[in-house]
């Protein structure tokens, strides 16, 4: 077991682990997790544990990254509620939102509602994270977008990124569904 190559190969494992921790994009981290699995398989096989290496290759490399890819894909999503008859005229604003939230690796998903009260109810009942309504400004006939959210982090991001007279961002406080503190 006292081979010269042993410490060199074992040193690869902390190197790749540090690379994995340094990743910011969740999808890049998944790919590096696959690399870590391959290197871990090599190290385990080298140290004589063929059964552990086999388990690492099957579970660590294949099952874990596939399941995590699906989990990341379904969880990093922002639900945007819009009205059915406005959905075609809102594309420009939707593109802007997509650009803003792609910095946080969030995907935008559209949900259509038939009228404004239904849209508001969806926001209150936590079906959507953000709603957007379009209206015409009275002074200069320009399009004004009203964005409403109930999540303070999204509100902060939108306040920082969307500045200008054509967009208003408001935050809705939703009563908690749990028991009231008495």
């Amino acid at each position: 077991m006292n081979d010269l190559y042993l410490p060199v190969i074992v040193a690869l494992l902390p190197l790749v682990a540090c690379m994995l921790v340094a990743q910011r994009n969740p999808y890049h981290a998944l790919v590096i997790r696959g690399v870590l699995g391959a290197v871990a398989t090599l190290v385990y096989a080298l140290l004589g544990a063929a059964d552990v290496a086999l388990t690492e290759a099957l579970v660590g490399t294949m099952l874990a990254i596939t399941l995590y890819a699906i989990a990341v894909r379904s969880s990093l999503v922002l639900h945007l509620g819009v009205l059915k008859d406005e959905s075609s005229g809102i594309e420009h604003f939707q593109e802007r939102l997509k650009d803003i939230f792609s910095q946080w690796h969030l995907r935008l998903e559209l949900t259509l509602y038939s009228d404004a009260s239904e849209l508001h109810q969806a926001l209150i009942h936590k079906e959507v994270h953000l709603t957007c309504i379009r209206s015409k400004s009275t002074e200069n006939e320009r399009q004004v977008y009203h964005a409403r959210t109930r999540i303070s982090r999204i509100y902060d991001i939108l306040r920082k990124e969307l500045s200008g007279p054509e967009v208003t961002v408001t935050r809705v406080t939703v009563p908690t569904s749990g028991k009231k503190p008495s």
């Binding site: 696959g34 096989a45 063929a50 290496a53 086999l54 290759a57 490399t61 890819a69 894909r73």
Partner: peptide
């Protein structure tokens, strides 16, 4: 025994790559 582990890890590595690439493409 190590040889068998190596062969299985070779095939599983390729399979996981294909699965991950397919999910990324769909995304």
């Amino acid at each position: 025994m190590l040889g068998v582990a190596g062969v299985i890890s070779l095939s599983v590595g390729n399979a996981s790559l294909m699965l991950l690439a397919h999910i990324m493409k769909r995304l």
